[in-house]
Amino acid sequence: MPEEAIYQLRNITYHYPTGEKALDDINLTVYKGERLVFLGANGCGKSTLLKLINGLIFPQQGSIFAFGEMINEERLSREEIAFAFRRKIGFVFQNSEAQLFNSNVWNEIAFGPIQMGLGREEVVRRVEEVIEMLELGPLKNRPPFKLSGGEKKKVALASVLSFNPDILLLDEPTNGLDPRTQRMLLNLIKQLNKAGKTIISATHNLDILSELSDRIIVFGEEHRLVAEGSSEEILSDRSLLIKVNLIDEEFHSHTHGDGHRHFHVHA
């Protein structure tokens, strides 16, 4: 694993405006080029952590260092710092409806590159190429409400890839995707990772862990980190998965010949 740390989170605690705790004393380092997965049951704070990493919300306690520099509200309100920071990170939200705010697919994909100050020809070239890569051609003039759930997810991904971020944040990336699109997405993530991009995903889907991760960080329901390890280590620790409420006693797992381990229930 490459050892250059790009993110350092120290003693992060975050409360929602209502006072409810979302993250409690999180310490974490993210290395360049790794595939990191935040694993946890619904409502454990994974999505909140992704938003903190993207500098969209800020912790009440603790500090975040990205690329060696401190990230906080005051610094990110300075345009040149925000600009340099944002162009490195792409965030695919869980709710595609929020991410697709433009009037059609083409404009959606062009929004990022235009905001990042790319020239007109470059924007057009990138948008067209991303459309071709993700097979979005027939949809490019469609408004978002005429897209299916899977198509929306693909467009959301395209809208982030078009400005070529170094770090991809994916919130429940395979939710609502049919098996073929899910396959395509996982292959694409693998390819992007090989090209040197850091992939940070949040999920509760155990089936995709081994493909999505080099390293897994497990969240407990008390909003703290409870374990860290490779997918093999985490998936073989049945009592851990039960403790964090991801599976119950009825689940058991097999390891297949290729080393892939998966959990299931017999009806």
Binding site: L56, E79, A82, F91, F93, A98, Q115
Partner: peptide, 22 residues
């Protein structure tokens, strides 16, 4: 809630209050 999410999604993709289109 949706408007908050949308704003976050816009900020995340580099929106600084100056919308621009081709």
């Amino acid at each position: 809630n949706l408007s908050k999410e949308i704003h976050a999604a816009m900020i995340s993709r580099g929106y600084t209050g100056r919308p621009d289109t081709i």
